[in-house]
């Protein structure tokens, strides 16, 4: 499954925000590569995991700045390409799924219209063909009556279906990399798994690279090949998902043990003792 050349190659990525009290460093020099694999980025709020996802697409607004020694997709430098080319790449080669479908779908356009428009900005296809592909895609995300859903407006669909529509829309132009930022944390538990299963199947079938950003270590372990654990803008540990149980960094262990577990009840939950040294430890490289 692993290709020799990575899809995404990122070295020493930094995201900074200038504030009145000084510079706030959201991401402090992280390096990783993404092949045709599923890479999970896990961390707590403020760890810089979402900023990393946004930085790859250059979606950091001023006063934020992105710097990196290398940030390349297939060898094409993402930091230096003009904004016009970046717009082609966004959605065309790299797609992103956000947390809440309610805010990522346009409320005044029907689901189908939005999908067709998204596709036609990246490929020159006829309207009829775009429609046919959109409906086929909706079917692929297990939407039972795609033709009916095609004409619905976003407020008429449930959260779970909304997120499946987002996945369909993002995968329509056949991107090579999919960035999913907490794609299911706005959904109920019983639909979460279903949505993730669909996303997982499509990513694997198409041989895409997936970056799955989440705060839920266990969930990421289930759906990824490799896991990157971030703390305070740096990578503290990298491991294979199958070897998560053997993780050694106290932060990773703390995250694992602080989750209340239905089957293995404990009198008291383990509380993470944050060591200031974690902040200062150099970032672990997740390049392969």
């Amino acid at each position: 499954m692993n290709d020799d050349k990575p899809l995404l190659d990122i070295e020493n990525l930094q995201v900074r925000f200038a504030t009145r009290t000084g510079t706030f460093e959201a991401v402090r020099g992280i390096s990783f590569t993404l092949g045709r694999e599923r890479l999970g980025i896990v961390g707590e709020s403020g760890s810089g995991k979402s900023m990393t996802g946004r930085a790859i697409l250059r979606l950091i607004r001023s006063p934020g700045t992105i710097e990196a020694d290398r940030m390349a997709l297939h060898g094409e430098d993402l930091l230096s390409v003009p904004e016009k080319r970046m717009r082609q790449l966004r959605g065309g080669k790299i797609s992103m799924i956000m947390q809440d479908p309610k805010f990522s779908l346009n409320p005044v356009m029907s689901v189908g219209q939005q999908m067709v428009e998204a596709l036609r900005t990246h490929e020159s296809v006829s309207k009829a063909e775009a429609r046919a592909r959109a409906i086929a895609m909706l079917e692929e995300v297990s939407i039972r009556d795609p033709e009916r859903v095609y004409d619905l407006f976003p407020h008429e669909v449930s959260g779970g279906m909304g997120q499946r529509i987002m996945i369909a829309m993002m995968l329509l132009p056949n991107p090579e990399v999919l960035i999913a930022d907490e794609p299911t944390s706005a959904l109920d538990v019983s639909v979460q798994l279903q949505v993730l299963d669909i996303m997982d199947r499509l990513v694997r079938e198409r041989g895409m690279g997936l970056i799955f950003i989440s705060h839920d270590l266990n969930l990421v372990a289930k759906f990824c090949d490799r896991i990157v654990i971030m703390y305070a803008g740096r990578i503290v540990e990298v491991c294979k998902a199958s070897e998560l149980r053997n993780a050694s960094h106290p932060y990773t262990l703390g995250l694992l043990n602080s989750v209340p577990d239905l089957e293995h009840p404990r009198e008291r939950l383990e509380v993470l003792q944050r060591d200031p040294a974690w902040r200062e430890a150099p970032s672990v490289s997740a390049r392969t």
């Binding site: 705060h215 270590l217 008291r268 509380v271 993470l272």
Partner: peptide, 28 residues
């Protein structure tokens, strides 16, 4: 966050034991 959640859940458990509180808790 999960680690903060653990702190708050421990706190709630302690407070309940200390003050003999009755809880009704809603959660998903």
């Amino acid at each position: 966050d999960v680690s903060v959640q653990a702190e708050i859940l421990n706190l709630l458990a302690d407070l309940r034991a200390e003050h003999n509180l009755t809880y009704v808790m809603v959660s998903h």
